[in-house]
Amino acid sequence: MSNLAQRVITAVVAIPIVFFLLWFSDYSRIGLMCFLAGVGAWEWAGMACKMYKGPDTRYLSFASSLALTLAWALSKGDYFGMPAVPYVVGMTFLLIFAIYIGLAYAKVEIDHLFPWLVMQLGAPLYVGLWGGMNVLMMGNGQGFEHCYPFILVMTSMWLCDTVAYFFGKFAAGKGPFGRHLFAPSISPKKTWEGSIAGSIATIAWVTYWAKCTSALSVFGAEINWVSAIVIGLLLTVAGQAGDLLMSALKRWSGTKDSGNLFVGHGGVLDRCDSFYLAAPALYLLMDFLQKLG
Rank of each mutant, 00 (worst) to 15 (best):
E43K: 07
W72V: 04
L94C: 10
W205Y: 15
M33C: 10
S75V: 01
V226S: 08
V268K: 09
F288N: 04
V8D: 02
G194H: 04
A238L: 04
M286W: 02
E222R: 03
W116Y: 15
S25E: 13
W72D: 11
S187L: 09
K291A: 14
F219N: 04
G139W: 03
L181S: 14
T10G: 05
F97K: 00
V237E: 10
G46N: 03
A278S: 15
A241K: 00
A183R: 02
L103G: 01
N134V: 15
D56C: 05
F262C: 07
F150H: 06
W209D: 04
G267T: 13
A201W: 12
G242Y: 00
D243C: 05
F288C: 04
A172I: 06
A73R: 09
W23Q: 01
S247A: 05
F182V: 09
V12P: 02
F144S: 02
L285T: 14
L292Y: 13
A281L: 03
S64N: 05
I101G: 05
L285I: 12
L235C: 01
I151E: 10
F97S: 07
S156P: 00
L152R: 04
A67M: 08
K76Q: 13
I196N: 08
Y100E: 05
A67C: 11
W23S: 01
G239T: 03
V85M: 15
L136M: 15
A278Q: 07
L159A: 11
Y148D: 06
S195D: 02
V12D: 02
T92E: 11
M286H: 02
I17D: 00
E145H: 06
S185A: 15
C34I: 13
K174Y: 07
P176H: 11
F144N: 03
A63I: 12
L74F: 15
F24Q: 08
A171Q: 12
T207R: 09
T162C: 02
P149I: 03
I96V: 13
W72Y: 13
R7H: 08
D243A: 03
I231P: 12
L68M: 12
W72A: 02
E109T: 00
D161T: 02
V206D: 12
K190H: 03
L277C: 12
G175W: 13
L22Y: 08
V8T: 13
M47F: 12
L103A: 12
F144Q: 03
W252K: 00
L216Q: 02
S156A: 10
C272N: 06
E222G: 01
M51Y: 13
W130S: 08
V218N: 00
G242K: 01
V108I: 03
Y87D: 09
S187Q: 10
K107V: 01
L4P: 03
L74N: 09
T57E: 15
A67V: 01
T191C: 07
S156F: 01
P16D: 02
G81Y: 12
Y105P: 00
A238K: 00
E193W: 08
R251F: 01
F24C: 03
G239I: 01
K190W: 00
L22A: 04
L32N: 02
S185C: 14
F19L: 15
Y165K: 05
F167D: 08
G141A: 14
S227Y: 11
